[in-house]
Design a protein around this nucleic acid. Structure first.
Lengths: 351, 351
DNA sequence: CCAACGGATGTTAGCGCTCACATGGGCGGG
DNA sequence: CCCGCCCATGTGAGCGCTAACATCCGTTGG
């Protein structure tokens, strides 16, 4: 027998070819702990040592392993965002905001999309998405799937939610950030009313709850003006859905103003009106929601409510950190703002 | 002295409160290795044992730690996608495709956005994004930032790229997936030519390389038809950019057909034409690229090229896995397809 | 001139998990 | 009736890193 040259019990695969902190230490002639100190910017490392380590790092092309670091420290440096969609403007922009804030703080952000609002499916996705150590989660709870995800999240997972306007009385057991789309909807409705319209119809996006906030804002404005609220039309998210609803709206001579739950819906409505020979804004005014980059170029240019989704995303991230670090965070999202363009005007002369 | 009750050297914080495989093992009365086997679906675990372990898992609410698993196995189960944007339709849809395929395979997907194409910025982002153990990266190299990221990626990082049509002769040192937008551009151009237009103008998106593939396809179709190619107009990504270029185009009586690098650009052009009193498609035909969900509802409905970004995303992911697992993957992305709607028609009667 | 100090560095343990191997108990065949 | 085999399970090691502590050294002040 060749003795110790035989594979010892536990003699291991050299597995990954990646260079570790130990390789760097060897190259720099220090202990690996010193390397760790350099990486983490700890004080009390002599400048010459630090330089030697840095040189070794560069030479070997060493990059730290996030997994190992997370495991060893117990501190995570990544967030997972749960969303039902990545292509819709509001969602994508929020995501981009989260990523921006996260990257600035040295966090990596992961995404999980909720394919369906089906409780079992949501539960399954949530299950894998909520890692006990990678932990932190941001849920885009603009819709049913998101709200359900929030509920399905195991207790103890640090979470913040991006939600529709926070209801005054609603108790939410998790930190959350929101854009005041309730006030925004009220504002847009009032704008239309002030233009002289007798009432304003509302084409809604699918709601996350029984009472959508945009719907609530619209209804409030109508109530305050003492105007009876027509039944809101339930819409989807897409232009197609807006188009279908738009055909109904166009067929009804009495509708002269319609507020849409988002710009895609408004685009569909615009298309349906054109097809039906109803002039916008001559015969009917339409106002959108979100101010997607395209909306200024619709025919006619869409009057809409601008929402600072990226700011909301950043706020969500900061809220998450605040939860662990300190206590205070300043909101960075701009308040909603009505962008007046060409798609809304006074009602036609004769009623 | 209370003896061993004093903190031993190395006596540790019980740090994370999270339940580990060992807690489950204790609860189920087996070794932690058996728990590991159950989790990983290994054979040779007696059914009764498996059930006991499963019960313990449920009861304790145990969820495996991805970090620990990755670290121990050396195998990663996550991908990072590098992109310069998340809101643009093509990017967002590709991302969604990657996520879908990834989730189906039990992978988590992270994103890093490249804020700028500035080499130093790209390098910095790439540096943090490429974890030596989480390793795998998909780059959305539709633009300069993406292409630079590809170059800046440290050697040894497993990477696949989503690129513009693969140039026949171009040697790419990494696996990549693409949609044949070169052929698609040629097809769209030919369509316009066949409609009777003397030539076709091209409004390009910013190119990742000196020779964009969409541009190349357009030029090829023109060459094949023996038609001189007008200078392509350099555009950006946004409707605004399309609008600005569109004003120039509208001012030139000779342009009767314009192909746009994406639908946003086309939207801007449509807007500019309308403003200039040039009828679409009566006076000038415009064709877009991508087939965003909005495009069918533009005024007029946009004739455009549909690109299967989600399929491309899925392909990228599978390519990445194939690199390590087996060798073959079947493309799932649908080929580009010209969607004929209302924005293109024959040129005006008199030349 | 030596104790006490403190800055720089090394040592030990272990995060939660997987891998390679060791072990034990039930079974069939000689 | 005992051996060898295999299935089920346990044990030992270590993935790359951080935290806590130990140690070593050159100073300084009494």
């Amino acid at each position: 027998m060749t003795g110790h040259s035989t594979r010892l019990p536990g003699g291991r695969r050299p597995r990954t070819g990646s260079i570790s902190i130990r390789d760097v230490a060897r190259a720099a002639g220090v202990s690996y702990q010193t390397v760790s100190r350099v990486i983490n910017g700890h004080a009390s490392v002599r400048e010459s040592t630090r330089q030697a380590v840095l040189a070794a790092i560069r030479e070997l092309g060493y990059r730290p392993s996030r997994a190992a670091r997370t495991l060893a420290s117990g501190r995570t440096s990544s967030v997972t965002v749960l969303t039902s969609n990545t292509t819709r403007y509001g969602y994508a922009a929020t995501l981009q905001g989260i990523e921006e804030a996260g990257r600035a703080a040295g966090f990596s952000v992961g995404i999980f999309v909720l394919d369906s609002a089906e409780p079992a499916a949501v539960r399954a996705t949530v299950e894998v998405a909520s890692d006990p150590i990678e932990g932190a989660v941001i849920v885009l709870a603009y819709d049913l799937a998101g709200v359900r995800a929030l509920q399905a999240l195991p207790a103890g997972v640090p979470v913040v939610a991006a939600v529709e306007a926070s209801a005054a009385g609603a108790h939410r057991p998790y930190p959350h950030a929101w854009l005041d789309d309730r006030a925004a909807a009220a504002h847009a409705t009032r704008y239309l009313l002030d233009l002289g319209h007798e009432t304003v119809h509302y084409l809604s996006i699918p709601s996350s709850t029984k009472t959508s906030d945009r719907t609530a804002g619209w209804r409030r404005a109508l109530d305050e003006a003492g105007v009876p609220a027509p039944a809101p039309l339930p819409g989807g998210w897409t232009p197609r859905s807006g188009y279908q609803a738009g055909r109904q709206l166009a067929a009804d001579e009495r509708v002269t103003a319609v507020l849409c739950g988002n710009d895609d819906l408004a685009l569909g409505v615009l298309c349906a009106m054109r097809e039906a020979g109803r002039a916008v804004p001559g015969d009917v005014s339409v106002v959108g929601f979100d101010d997607a980059p395209q909306s200024a170029f619709f025919a006619p240019a869409l009057t809409t409510v601008r929402l600072d989704f990226a700011g909301l995303g950043r706020d969500c991230f900061h809220l998450l950190r605040a939860r662990f670090d300190h206590g205070e965070i300043a909101a960075t999202a701009s308040p909603p703002e009505l962008i007046v363009r060409a798609s809304a005007g006074p009602p036609p002369a004769s009623g």
